[in-house]
Each structure stands twice: as C-alpha cells, then as structure tokens.
Design a protein around this nucleic acid. Sequence first.
DNA 1: TTAGGGTTAG
Length: 825
Amino acid sequence: MVSSSRMLGLSFGLIVANVATLSAFIPQQNLFLSRRSGQKLAYEINATATSGSSEGLANEARTVVKAFNEPPVKIQSRLEEIQQTIERGENLTQDYCDTTLGLCVAAEQWECVIDVLEQMQKQQMTQERSTFRMCLQQCFEVGNGASALEILQAMEQALIEPQPDDIGLVAAAMCRNNRKESGWWKRALDLLLKNPSPDVPIDAYDAVLACLVDERNWKESIKLLRRLEQPPKNKKRMLPKPTLATYREVIECCVAGNQVEQGVQILDKMKKRGIKPTVYTFEIVISGLARKLQWRRALQLLDTMDEYGVNKTVPIYNTLISACARGKEIGVAKSLLARMKKEGIWPSIITYNSLISSCASAGRWKDAMNLFDQCNRDPHVEPDIYTYTNVIRACSKGKMTERAFTLHDTVLEKNIPLDSYFYAAVIEVAANARQWKRALELLDEMEEKGVPPSDVVYSLTIKACGNGGKWQSALNLLEKMRSKGMRINLITYNAAIAALAKAAKRSAKYPTGRPWRPQEPDSGKICFWVRAIELLDQMKKDNIKPDGFSFSSAISCCGAEGRWQEALALIDLMKKGGPRTQPNRVAFTAAIDACGRSGEHMHALWLFRNMTNNGISADRVAWNTLFHGFRVANKPDLAYELWGEMRKAANTTDRITAMPDHQKPTPDIITVTDVIATLAKSENQVDQDRVDEVFAEAVNRGIIFGSHLDSVWEVDLSGLSLPVARAACRFVVNRTRQKVEDEGEDVKDLHFITGVGAAFGQGQGRKGHASTTADKSSKSQSLRDYVQKEVLLGDLNIKSTIPKLAQGTVTIEREVLAKWIERRQ
DNA sequence: TTAGGGTTAG
C-alpha cells in the first residue's frame, strides 16, 4: 500500500507539472485534469487560439491538443489487456505492468499512468526498482529526457537509490533531446558528473559525445575524453573507461569541428592505449583530411592502416582518390588506382568516376578517355550516368564535339537513367561548339524525356545562345524560366547579360584607330546596353544583387555601342553598392575600353588611375585597353609615356613569376602593336625613332621573334600587323648588317616569312575588326607585298625579288643585301 | 561510408 501511494504521489507530481505548463497559457484556470476535462480544456484552448490570437499561442495550443490526443494503440491495447486479465480473475505479471507503465510515462499519457497504477494497486502490486528501471528504459527508447528526469526524482522521493545504470539511462535519454533543443547534453553531463561511478555505462558518455559531434564542439569533447582517460592523481577511477566508440565519437567531433589534425592525434593516442581503430575510425579521419585536400597526410594514414592490420575498403580508396583528384594530383590518384588493384581491392564505378571527373576538370581529356576505356574493359563495373557525364565533359575540354554527341546517343541507346547533370554536360559541349540550335534541341529533349532542366542547364543553354549570337533566344529562355516559376539566379542572369554583350560586340564592327560614335537609343536599332540595364533592373526586382560579372558585361555592352558615359555611370553605381559589387579589374577594364573606343582617352586614363588608386593593380589586359584608347585618340606622346610606365611596372612588381600569366603587367604582342601603331602614325620624327626603340625592347623581352632571335637569316613576320612588320624589317636588316660588319658573318639570303593565311585576321587585329571577314590569303599576300614594296623598296630602299614558289616569303638575295650594307657604310 | 555542373575583359 505504502509504495503504491508513493507511486501515485509520483504520478500526481507529473500531472501537476503538466497543469503548470497549461496554466501558463490559461492562468485563470487551475485544474486537476481528468482525461475528459483535459480534452475539453485542450479543445477550448485550440478554439480560442485559432480564433485570432497570436500565431505562437496557436502553435502551443496545437501542441497541447496533441498531448491530449488518444493514447497510442499500443498503450490502449495493453490497458485493455490488463482490464481483461483482472476481469477474468487472473493475476497480472509485474513485468507486464512495469512495461505498460513505462510506455505510458514515456508517451506522457498521464491518465493512463493513473489507470495502470490503480490496477496495480487493486492487484496488491507494488512499485519495485524494476518499475522505475522500465520507465527509464522506455523514456530512453523514445528519447524523452524530461520524463526520465522526473522518474529519477520520483525514485529519490520513493527512497530508492538510483543505480549507475539508472543514471546512465537518464543521461542517454536526455541526450536524445539534444537534436531538438540544444543544451541537453550539458544537463546530461552534469548529471553524470554529479553521480560519478566507474559502473555508469560508457554509452551514456558516448551519447554526450554524439551531441557534441552534432554541435561541432570539439573542445568540450576532448575535455571529456581527458576526464574519462585519467582519474585524478592518486585517486581511484570514478568514471568508466573510454572504449573504441568513445574515441570514435571524439575523433568525429574533431573532424566535424574542422580540427582534423586533432583527430589524427587521437588516433595515435588509441594506439598507445591499445585500442584498435576500425575501418570506420580511419574513414572519418581520412575523409576529414580529404575534405581539406590534405591528401599527403591521408596517404600516411593508409600506411597506418596496414600497420594496424585494418582492412582497407573501396570507399577509403575512393575518398583518397577524389581528394587527390580535387587537389589536382592526378598522378597520385592514378597510382592509388594501381595500388588498390594490386591489393586485390577492386575499383568500383565510383573509383573510375572520381578519376575521370578529375581528368575532365583538369583538361586532361586523353587520360579521361583512357580511363573510360579501362572502365569499359573492366568486367566488375558498368559505366553509369556519372561516367558518361564526366567523359562528355572531358570531350568538351578536348574540343571533341562529335565524340561527345555520340556518347550522348550511346546513353540514350543504353537506356541509362538520365539526369540534368548529364544534359548540362552535353549542352555545354554544344555551347562551346557554338551550336545554339543543338543546345535548344537538347533542352527540348530533356523535357520530352521527363528530365526537369535545372537552373544550370538553363544557364548553359543561355550561354550557347549567347555564343551563337542568339541574344533573343537567350532572353526568351529567361522568360521561360520565369513562366515556369523558377527563380532566376545570379549566374543565369549573368549568362544572359553576357549574351547581350557578345551580340553587342558582334554587331559593333569597331573601326580601327578611330573613335566610335554611338547609336541613339531611339534610332530604331536594338540597343544592347539598354537591355543589359533592363536586366540589371529586373535583378533588383527579383532581389538579386548584381555582382562584378553582371556589371562588367553590362559595361561592355555600353562600350560596344559607344555609351561611355553610361559605362562611367555603371562604375559609379558599383562603387555605391555593397562590398561584393565594388568595381573589380574586369569592370574597370571594360569601362576603360568603353571610353577608349569612344575617343575619350582622358576618361580612360582617369579610370585607370582610379583603379590603381583603389588598390587594384593593372594587369596586362588593363594596360592594353588603355593603350588602345590612346591609339584611338591618336596620342603618341601619352602612349610612349605609358609604355615607359608599364616597363617600370613590369620590372618592379613583386612576385611577378607567381602570378598567372594574364595577370602580369608585362607587355605582350598586343601592347607592342598598339604602341607602335600609335607612334608610327605620327608625322613626328621623334615618334618614328621611338617605334624602333619600342620594337627593340619588345625583341629584348622575347615578345617578338620569341627565341628565334639568333637566326636572323630567316624571320617569321606572320601574325604581325603592318606597322610592326615594318619595324621588324628595319630591325632585322640592321641586325644582319651588324652580324656582317661587326661579327664578320657571311652574307646570306635573308628570308622574311609572311605566312600563308596566318598574317591577318587571327594573330593580328581584334575580334570584330573588318579584317576578319576579308579573304585571308589575299591579306597575307598584302603583307608580302607590303614588305616587298613599302618596306624594302620604300623604307630601306632594298631591291629584292619575290620567288615564284615560295609564296608568302619575301627574300632579299645575298648580293642585294651585300650591296645595301655597303651603301650604308 | 565514397563520385558530378554554370557566368566576365584587350
């Protein structure tokens, strides 16, 4: 009787706690809840809450209603079973009652708790230690830490001393609450430490550690491990010993907390303590290292696994291979493939896919193809959609357009399940091959096959349209996305603006060396710059912040249409934006170009200075763009001055060798071409002399003639523009004179290769120049004629002949050259 | 437990 009333006391306590929660919502009501009144109350709360009070109250009311729902079927049937047993006059077993009670407590079905307790009382059954234990067990099963804690309190009230197992159960139950509500681990740990015993199951501590993994709290986990490892000095052990699982949790915690190195150290510690890690333990650390691309360190662990005698697995190798692959260590990755095969661990399709993917992204398409062949020969694996996607990407890099399309057909034939990644790869091939029609067809095919196009697919299709000059289709695709209710993201918008920029440039047909005057917006022609700005507005409406890409493409639309003022305004807009839209090098360069092409060389120069003053160093493209502006505006003095400045920058910039080539502020053939063209146009003799000076410097730097400077008897002029070719001829004949006079070399035939078809339209001249459309062979012929007539006969007054067979080559015969040298003396 | 994507400037 006594213990029965104690148990009733416990259940009252729990119910009172619940009423307290409820009365927080309805303070005026103070109720003892019978099942019926509870339901009624819940109904009332729900009614008042949904009839217009706050959202928060409504939600809480719903929770309460849920709490008063009918007990789960499992409990109900158990209650019925108890009822029937008593009706039949049979005896209930303790265990059955304990379990039922536990289920009720865990489910917070307090009415049922009372029912069971009443039945137990009728049966003269008391609440044993087993009753409490079962309640705790059930609370643990469903992860009800709060009820478990209350049971623990009830035990104390009932003067039943909790055992280490009970403490462990409560703590573990509490930890299960941590996912929903952070902080439970701390309470659980407090409980464990307040009841120290080496007999508390280590699982309870492991449960705390698992919470710490979720919270990436590596510091706390290491602290706890230390506590478990070593009892305080000269004292006997008060906490359970850490096990393999404990160490694993701590390691996982370190890795989750981005402290992989800590994880490795703990792995070492395990060795000292004689605990053998499992494959899984290694996997956590290896994948952690892999994520940080520390493949070397990960490789060491592979050897450690051998030392421990832990079997390596395919996923371990795959993780490592992909780490190497992402770290651009394709050689190492391939050697790992060989190593695993040698060890009898057969590569899976994932292994091949990782490797092929890395080759594809590194542009090593030959390696990718090789691996694809290996994969096809390997009877253990079957290429899947990943494989084909990556091989197609490799083809794309290798410009093997047709091969990629054939692979696409193969996938369809093989009925391999398709996805949007696959189509993205194929469409990218079409985009790079300027096959906009095909890209659109592929998009249709996707829809036909029931593969929903992703935003990436749309971006790439838009890029394909842009590359094909189909800006209208690009904009249509944007509309299509919108009508489908897809959110158009930054990159997709950027692809569309880029499409406009490309179309603008294509239709611009810049004049060389002359200012370009704008079309007025209302002149009936399409204004790309207007559309680009419209898109920027659209982005704003969609709450998407344009970035450097968006702006620089819009600026180059302006540049192509002579809208230099609008370009300046966009730069200004960028400056006013957030840190992510601050004008970068590309945006500045595009604006410099816009001004420069419009003959606004001072604005171009101002932008250039403004850029460097803002801490953005000029790269080669920026310099060249400014030079081009000076050329358009016919400013030989400024061009020469800037040339000097650029040489200085090229000589003084630190760590220049560490820069990617295009970032270096060193002059290239384009720089030299623009500087020389600008100087050569001047009537001034000083400028004419500067042409030769600049040219000599260009040769010194290896910009012209490359490493073939020594073979002055055969000089390649192909790819040089007319003014540069003229300077080149002067330079070469003077050089030969030096060779003969100063160095005593014999005079030989001097050949100028002017190239067949290679002189104009490709190397020389900008995209969009009129020369690209001209017949190449006739152009190269003109360089040949130019060298012959204008330079040799005109400038240098050397009479030479054009051999019949060696088309494109102008030869000065040795006798002619010898006479010329003599005359010069 | 392990594998995949897109945008810019001379």
